[in-house]
């Protein structure tokens, strides 16, 4: 498991300032979709109450039970994988660097880091009704590193995140004697 106190290549006096995940809207969307996909078929079974005898049919009954259990298990599996995808997407901002970890599906993980000194430009963006109402959006960081751009997707309080990183960049420059 990942321990924030024992980050890889941790420098002396390095401390974690921000630990970010996507806004809680992401797991809420997953949960609502999951509930819809469970409730709708269950509701249909209840609605067609006069067809309940199908389950006692010698050939149709077993097949309905098989198809039904496979469907519900598949819906749960997809929902849990989507949640894991959300949970493992993280952005860690320390007083020395930014670590970007992106879980893309179950078998693809992308991790990159950049030092604050290589940051050239930071912008925050909250576009849309929901983004504005719930104050979440993107933070884009332009760098001089190999990975030119870091994008914090749907993070809460993007303006505050941008301001915090800018402040850390300034402090890093003073610490390392840069202008």
């Amino acid at each position: 498991m990942m321990d924030l106190k024992k980050l890889p290549n941790r420098q002396k006096h390095e401390k974690v300032v921000l630990f970010l995940r996507r806004h809680w809207f992401a797991p809420l969307t997953i949960a609502l979709t999951f509930i819809l996909l469970i409730v709708v078929p269950a509701g249909l079974v209840g609605y067609f109450a006069d067809k309940q005898h199908w389950f006692s049919h010698p050939t149709l009954g077993p097949l309905l039970v098989l198809a039904g259990s496979m469907y519900f298990m598949a819906v749960w599996l997809i929902a849990s994988i989507e949640f894991t995808d959300y949970y493992l997407d993280t952005w860690i901002v320390t007083n020395e660097r930014i670590i970007n970890i992106e879980q893309i599906g179950l078998f693809h993980r992308h991790a990159s880091e950049m030092h604050l000194a290589s940051i050239q430009d930071i912008t925050s963006d909250a576009e849309g009704f929901l983004h504005t109402m719930f104050n979440y959006g993107q933070v884009n960081i332009q760098t001089a590193a190999e990975e030119k751009r870091f994008n914090f997707k749907d993070v809460p309080f993007p303006d505050q995140v941008k301001d915090t990183i800018l402040k850390l960049v300034e402090e890093d420059k003073k610490r390392h004697g840069q202008k």
Binding site: M1, D3, L63, L66, M70, L88, L106, R109
Partner: peptide, 30 residues
């Protein structure tokens, strides 16, 4: 014959559930 299909599905389900838990254990925040 349909149980064969079900058996294949169960194997895939078990495999993905295992890898899901594995990823959380390996990469999740302590």
């Amino acid at each position: 014959a349909f149980l064969i299909l079900y058996g294949i599905f169960i194997c895939i389900y078990a495999l993905y559930t295992f890898f899901n838990a594995y990823h959380l254990i390996k990469f999740g925040l302590i």
